[in-house]
Design a protein around this nucleic acid. Structure first.
Lengths: 252, 252
DNA sequence: CAGTGGTCTAGACCACGCC
DNA sequence: GCGTGGTCTAGACCACTGG
């Protein structure tokens, strides 16, 4: 990042009033791009702040501010005395970032999964809308039953754009942690998600799979998950028994 | 904050390995204390960073880092060119910090409240446990019906330690935004909360009040709210119709 | 125009992890 | 002992607000 670039950026290239973007934001974007395009895979030790600062032509403080912001998004993990590492979806901390169900006794554990089916099909209008797909786009649909202590906990449907996950149906197994699969097999890192919760009555099918009476109140979790680059990647609807579990949410 | 204090703090007063706490954390605590004890009431314009730095005997950068952390907790609002203000619970942004229910069309509105009853009583075991109260402690219990567009949305029970809210039952009216009441009448600022969600079936009483059939699935929101000083202040259980609304949660 | 918070820099020192 | 990120400082300049 030479002086001309910096000046153009700092002054907005002549549109001072509107186009101003801080240097550390630009640095942040350049670093996130390397995380997004696979240059820096999960687990990698990043260059030190000094090295990055020299390479990008900014001060260490600016690189630091960019890295702090990236760390706040859980894309990177900073360890004093060791360095800055690309976050791994297998880590417990990252694991529970998107799994908010907790046993009533407070213990957080990750359920096992039983895949009920994987199929490809033409995206419905709702699926196209949620995943920002074009007409005629194809999607994968995965149905799973998830259980804890041999006891069914929830059923869910996962919808993925087929274009972004080629050959997914041919895999011999869909692993329990699909976000780790997205990252390792397709280079897709889930950065954040939005969940919409409702209380619904169990359908006959759901009741059968969850071994509960029909019309049992279930917690419906409608999740849209986004990649690092900001595009929607996964639409998931889970229906959960909440007799022994609850959805835990911290409001800060 | 003189040099002796700084040294003692920075080196942990002889227990370097365990007792280290950054200067900006100490500054943060001193500033939060003024927010907590009423020295700086909601809406107030704080002294400038330079003034605070001079007063506390640290650099402006350290004050800035402390204020940034406080702003991240929504206790303070920073406005470039104007100054730093104590957050007001009446502001829309703060209002929806603790109200996550959203209409299915995406519009976020705040419901009206109808108070069904206010009573004082001896805290139950569950109430004592949640609110960290001693035996024989008294609590206020408020029951409310909340509606949007003349249509019932939820029923809720609010439990408050009587010691912290003297004379609450004698108020001629419980306002819709109780967190603003806590702040203005009792100097209690709610800083954060934890919510546990479950799906439950409406009881006969709930069904009557919400004009829904008995056993309708309701979203149960069990909230424990904490004051700036970290003590539990309010226990609230809400039961919500989710046919037209959902609980919106962003996972970052 | 003055004052505020926001950005950027440069350098010093500290806590931590590993060798 | 060395290199890392973490803290703290000091100073310069920028963007925004209001008078």
């Amino acid at each position: 990042m030479n002086d001309a670039t910096k000046t153009a950026a700092a002054s907005g290239g002549g549109e001072t009033a509107l186009g101003f973007r801080p240097l550390y934001q630009q640095v942040r974007e350049r670093l996130v791009a390397r995380l997004s395009d696979g240059t820096w895979p999960p687990g990698l030790l990043l260059p030190s702040e000094q090295q990055l600062a020299a390479e990008l032509g900014v001060s260490q403080g600016t690189v630091r501010k960019a890295l702090d912001a990236i760390a706040a998004d859980n894309l990177v993990v900073r360890r004093q005395g060791r360095g800055t590492f690309v976050a791994e979806p297998e880590e417990g901390r990252i694991l529970f970032q998107f799994f908010k169900l907790t046993a009533d006794d407070g213990r957080r554990r990750f359920p096992q999964s039983v895949v009920l089916g994987v199929a490809q099909g033409k995206a419905s209008a709702a699926e196209r809308q949620r995943l920002a797909l074009a007409r005629e786009a194809m999607v994968w649909r995965i149905r799973r039953l998830r259980e804890l202590d041999e006891r069914p906990m929830l059923v869910e449907k996962i919808v993925l754009p087929a274009a972004r996950f080629p050959g997914l149906g041919a895999l011999k197994e869909i692993p329990n942690n699909v976000y780790a699969l997205y990252a390792s097999a397709y280079g897709v890192t889930i950065a954040h998600a939005q969940e919409k919760l409702k209380a619904v009555a169990a359908t006959a099918t759901e009741a059968r799979r969850l071994y509960c009476p029909a019309n049992t109140p279930l917690l419906s979790i409608d999740r849209l998950a986004f990649s690092i680059d900001g595009t929607p990647v996964e639409w998931r609807v889970s229906r959960c028994l909440t007799d022994r579990y609850h959805y835990l949410c911290d409001l800060k």
